[in-house]
Nucleic acid binder design. Structure first.
Lengths: 197, 197
DNA sequence: CGGTTTCTCATACAGACGTACTATAACAGC
DNA sequence: GCTGTTATAGTACGTCTGTATGAGAAACCG
C-alpha cells in the first residue's frame, strides 16, 4: 500500500473549504472548482475523495454535525454539572457568537432545505436527523428530570419547548435581528423559571 | 398603451412556479428554464418581468412574505380577539400543516441563507427582515401587555421567547421531527402558563 | 530494484446556466 | 389605417457546471 494519506483529514480539509465558501458567498458558490481553489488542490482531488457532489455535501453535513457536538461537549464540561447549568450550555451552544459557531449555524440552515426536500420525496430516507433530534429531546428531558424543578413544571412539555428554543434563537442571532446577549438572557430567564435556585 | 397586462398577477404566477419547483426539487432547481416550463411560458418572459435572476428571487421572497401575513391575518380573524387567542394564532401560523404553509416555511428557510450571507458582506443591506422581526416582537409584546397575565410574568422576556418559538417549532414540524399536534400543544401549554384563564 | 497500488494533476466533454438579441404579434392613440 | 409602444417567442452566446478519462509522480512490497 503505497503513499499513505490520512483520508479523513484530507476530507475534512475539503469540507472545511466548503464551509468557508458558504460563509463568504453562499452554498451555491461551493462548486468543485471553487472548493478545489479554496483548498489549494486540483479539481480532481475533490472528485477522488468524494466521488460525486452529493457525497461532498453529505460529508460536509456530517462534519459540521460532529463539530457542533464537540463544541457542545466543551460547553458542558465548563459547567458545574448541575442540570440547570448543563441545559444552559446546551441551549447557548446554538447561539452563533464567533466565526466557528456562525459557520456551523449557517451550514445547518443551508443544508437543511435539501434534506427536507429529499425527505418529502422519500419519507423513509435520511433518518439521521430524526434520531438526532430525538436524542436531543431525550437529553433535555433527562436533564430536566434531574431537577430540582419548580412545583408546577411539566417536564415533557418543557423539554419540547426547550428543544425548539435553541434553533429558534440561533436563527435570529445569526441574521442579526437578535443580539447574542439577548439570546443568553432569554435562555437564562426561562431556565430560572423552571428550576429551583 | 397597448396590450394591457396585469404585471403583478403575471409576476405572481411566476414566483408561484418558483415555489412549486423549490418544494419539489429544491431552490437550486429553480432556474429560468425550469420556471418558464413550470409556468408554461417562454424563458424570455421570466426575463421580461424580473430582468435578472436576483430580481426573481427577491420578488419570490416578497410574495411569500405577503402570503404568510395574509395567512396570519385569517388565523387571527378566526379567534375571539383575546390576547391569549391572538398570540396562539400568531404562533400556530408558523406551523406548516398543509401544502401552502409547508411551502411558505420551506421558502423562508431556502431564501434565508442568501439573505444572511448578503447581510454579512454589507451589514447595512437588507433592512427589511430586521424591521419585520422587530414588528413581530412589538406585536407579541403588545398582545402580552393586554393580559391578563399571571403574577410573576416578565412580558418583555416572554416576548423574546415567543418570537423565537414560532420559527423554532416550524422548522421541526417541517422536517418531520415534530408533529403539528405536538407543536400546537407546546404553544398552548406555554401560553396557559403565561395567561390567567 | 521493478512492479503494483495510491495518489495527483490537467484536460476534455456534454449539458445547463443566465443573459442578450432579434423578430413578430397585439393592442392604444392619432 | 397607420404608428408606436408593449408583450411574447425563439435563438444564440459565452461561461460555468459536474463528471470522465488518461497520463504521470510517489511510495510501499516483493
Amino acid at each position: 500500500m503505497p503513499k499513505k494519506v490520512d483520508h479523513d483529514a484530507r476530507r475534512r480539509e475539503l469540507t472545511d473549504a466548503v464551509c468557508r465558501i458558504t460563509l463568504r458567498a453562499g452554498l451555491g458558490s461551493a462548486t468543485f472548482r471553487q472548493v478545489a481553489a479554496e483548498a489549494g488542490v486540483s479539481v480532481n482531488q475533490v472528485q477522488y475523495y468524494f466521488g460525486t457532489k452529493e457525497g461532498l455535501l453529505e460529508a460536509t453535513q456530517e462534519h459540521v454535525g460532529e463539530r457542533s457536538i464537540e463544541r457542545l461537549m466543551s460547553w458542558i464540561e465548563a459547567t458545574d454539572g448541575s442540570a440547570r447549568a448543563v441545559l444552559g450550555a446546551f441551549l447557548k451552544s446554538f447561539v452563533p457568537v464567533d466565526e466557528e459557531s456562525r459557520m456551523a449555524m449557517l451550514m445547518y440552515v443551508a443544508l437543511y432545505t435539501e434534506g427536507v426536500v429529499e425527505a418529502m420525496g422519500d419519507p423513509s430516507a435520511n433518518p439521521t436527523r430524526k434520531t438526532e433530534v430525538e436524542m436531543m429531546y431525550a437529553t433535555v428531558l433527562e436533564q430536566l428530570q434531574r431537577g430540582p424543578l419548580q412545583k408546577d413544571v411539566d417536564a415533557e412539555a418543557e423539554a419540547t419547548l426547550l428543544t425548539a428554543l435553541g434553533p429558534g434563537v440561533g436563527l435570529y442571532v445569526l441574521d442579526g435581528t437578535m443580539t447574542a446577549e439577548s439570546a443568553y438572557a432569554t435562555v437564562d430567564h426561562h431556565l430560572d423559571r423552571l428550576f429551583v435556585t
